[in-house]
């Protein structure tokens, strides 16, 4: 503890001399948020987490034949080869040469619905995207097939830490796009993500804020999504979590799988990759 305080002091002093570090405290102990999250996890231990059922629902959907081609999704390539789901989430988002895009897990599922099951982009939107969008409001426990599928695939990385390599130009570009979005001030409230998520001691209405640049905190958060949100009574993905804050900043609705969605997710998961926190789905969150 004492050491932490001293280091904090030193970093503060260094910050004064080196402005580049001013907004970037890393790993100084985001204690109040970590403790709050621990209390939530104690109140709903894994065996009591209803999100476990969503994993089974997602599995059933994954192996169900559908679409014009009457095929299931079991040959979808999540980056490790067709049909390999084990460990895939721990390495997403990643660049896919077949689409020329950096894709999140949700984005990749949508791609496979088109490429394998033969749905048109319009059908994918109507059958999968819109239902997820329309059920993402507070206290709407309906859930959606895209979230169920995402939860099933993500859970196949349980026990593994995030290990994104960022070893090609497209992913590096996307990472920096996410970094840019994290710091860029915009929207009706002149805010950036950093205002609320780049410091250890900040609170909103007395509630401690997670410092997403603290790699342990970033790891805890990335490893928990898709998470069961108690207030909503349903599972929510990382896209949803980011969308809630984008909406609070009064920015427009962010498209799942879009360049900024993928970039932001990649940016946050690189911070998680720097931690040793292991994926543990379904996580649990009290509310948005």
């Amino acid at each position: 503890m004492r050491q932490k305080v001293q280091l904090g002091l030193a970093v503060t002093l260094i910050s004064a001399a080196m402005p580049a570090f001013a907004a970037n405290p890393v790993n100084q102990g985001n204690d109040a948020w970590v403790e709050m999250q621990q209390r939530v996890e104690q109140a709903m231990p894994p065996e009591a987490n209803p999100g476990a059922f969503t994993i089974d629902d997602g599995k059933a959907l994954f192996f169900k034949k559908a679409g014009p081609n009457n095929k299931d999704l079991s040959t979808c390539d999540f980056g490790l080869g067709p049909g390999v789901v084990k460990d895939a989430y721990a390495q997403l988002p990643r660049y896919f040469p077949d689409t020329g895009r950096v894709e999140t897990l949700e984005g990749r599922l949508l791609t496979c619905m088109e490429k394998i099951q033969g749905f048109t982009p319009e059908q994918v939107k109507e059958k999968f995207l819109m239902p997820m969008y329309k059920t993402s409001g507070e206290e709407d426990g309906t859930g959606s097939d895209l979230v169920r599928l995402t939860t099933y695939i993500a859970a196949q990385s349980n026990g593994e830490p995030f290990k994104i390599k960022l070893d090609n130009a497209e992913e590096k570009k996307s990472y920096h796009l996410g970094e840019y979005m994290f710091f860029h001030r915009w929207g009706e409230m002149d805010l950036n993500c950093a205002t609320c998520h780049a410091y250890n001691e900040r609170t909103v209405r007395g509630v401690p804020l997670p410092n997403l640049l603290d790699t342990h905190t970033a790891g805890k958060i990335a490893a928990a999504f898709p998470a069961y949100v108690i207030k909503d009574g349903t599972m929510r993905t990382q896209w949803w979590r980011n969308e809630r804050c984008v909406m609070a900043m009064r920015l427009p609705w962010i498209e799942t799988g879009s360049p900024l969605d993928a970039a932001l997710t990649l940016f946050l998961r690189i911070q998680a990759t720097k931690s040793d926190v292991k994926i543990n789905i379904p996580g649990v969150k009290p509310r948005a």
Partner: peptide, 25 residues
Amino acid sequence: APSWAESQKHISYDEFMKAARQSFP
């Protein structure tokens, strides 16, 4: 460690806005 200054060396405002237009359809 992420940095505001660093992000601007890799991405321009116009590039970011282009991504925004694709992401806020």
